[in-house]
Design a binder for these strands. Structure first.
Lengths: 224, 224
DNA sequence: ATTGTATATTTTGTATACAAAATAAGGAAT
DNA sequence: ATTCCTTATTTTGTATACAAAATATACAAT
């Protein structure tokens, strides 16, 4: 069923940022870093004041964030930071599992040796952080690893969807790494990924990645 | 690897529409129905006049559409209707193939008999239109069929992503049904889906659906 | 004719102002 | 005290106004 992608990859141009974009980024960070907790009402007057912009770009930013699924706009009743139900998280992880399974298979077919090498380097970095017990850097490298796998799969839509879901799950997954035992098992799974990568065994890689994501459900489900 | 979803399905409330939403819907229709061709610049002054709204809700609608991938906002240079490159379409179909493969597997596990029956009824409807040569109604039922498969898979994220991609491909897929031979083969594939559905054979259903989508690439690729 | 440059016009981005809706506050009646 | 209703106050939605940027136009110099 698989077709090898008939298109090469290409670079993207850098665009200038409008106020709207900056505001969207700022709010996104506030949400992801937990300064705006899920369920919190988004106080326009306050935030507009705090960010020093007028309501027009601010509200445009809200539309963007709503479309991304980070907030919910209730007509005439204000916006709130979206609170993920267990159902939401499960469905996102289930989907992500399949997306990354696909990505895993595809990179083994499509990525260059150098690119695979880059992934393995990233993996080594992660291991180092793990051994030294540096949770935050590990976490960031982990995000980077998964993003890059999706990136290198050579399917832009896949990358976009993965990025969106990963962003929305960011906070929750961070919490999931709290228990040491959880971290150990996650690292073990990453070791398996690295092994599959070295062999360019797409089937195995996909399998491990999917399993990894479904295990993530077990690791995070009590934190919701 | 598969877990059966630990959550039941539930109904959703109906929300009132803001002006912004109405405008977004209107423009979406204009794009999907081809009144605003891909690549076309979106003339704010003209459309705002035509729709009888001010620029504020109009521009908010643009943000929403941009987040959905239907238009592209180039800062200070206006918005254009997004033109899909062959790469874009391929990547969307490749992804869609995997999403619907997953959906096919899941409905066989999770959907009720009545729901599967509903799908088969829809299929019969489609056949009738096919035999009578009514392309447009067939096309609409087809969209409905694929949407409902994703709906019944019981994974909200999957449904959302499928809906988004399907919407963006709407026009192009319509064009793909032009040649009679193409239509014949698409219907043949749908017959296979129905057969798998009747047996609740998720593996087979997923397989056919994925194949169906990859064949769609062949059916549409010359229309881009 | 072509290129370049200066000026006018249009288009886009943001702020403010006003209207409508929702929420909160203040009593009166039970 | 609790419920209901009425009236402020706040919050949200939309329109308009102004600023900045981009594009088009006109004209001169080569």
């Amino acid at each position: 069923m698989e077709l090898s992608s008939p298109f090469p990859m290409e670079a993207v141009a850098i665009e200038k940022q409008t106020l709207h974009d900056q505001v969207a980024n700022r709010i996104r960070d506030l949400i992801i870093e937990g300064h705006l907790a899920p369920g919190t009402r988004i106080d326009e007057t306050m935030l507009v004041e705090q960010l020093g912009v007028s309501r027009t770009p601010f509200r445009e930013a809200l539309r963007t964030l709503a479309a991304e699924g980070l907030i919910i706009i209730r007509p005439s009743k204000g916006s709130i930071v979206r609170k993920l139900t267990p159902q939401d998280v499960f469905s996102m992880l289930e989907l992500l599992a399949h997306l990354e399974k696909l990505a895993g298979r595809l990179i083994c077919e499509r990525a260059s040796d150098a690119q695979i090498d880059g992934l393995l380097k990233l993996h080594e970095e992660m291991l180092k952080r793990y051994r030294e017990g540096d949770r935050l850097p590990y976490y960031k490298l982990n995000q980077e690893f998964h993003s890059r796998v999706s990136e290198l799969a050579g399917n832009e839509s896949l990358r976009d969807v993965q990025a969106n879901i990963q962003a929305r799950l960011k906070r929750i997954r961070f919490l999931g790494n709290s228990k040491p035992a959880y971290w150990d098992s996650a690292v073990a799974e990453h070791e398996q990924m690295a092994a599959a990568l070295r062999k360019r065994d797409g089937e195995a890689l996909g399998q491990v990645m999917a399993q990894h994501l479904m295990n993530t459900w077990d690791r995070v489900k009590d934190h919701i």
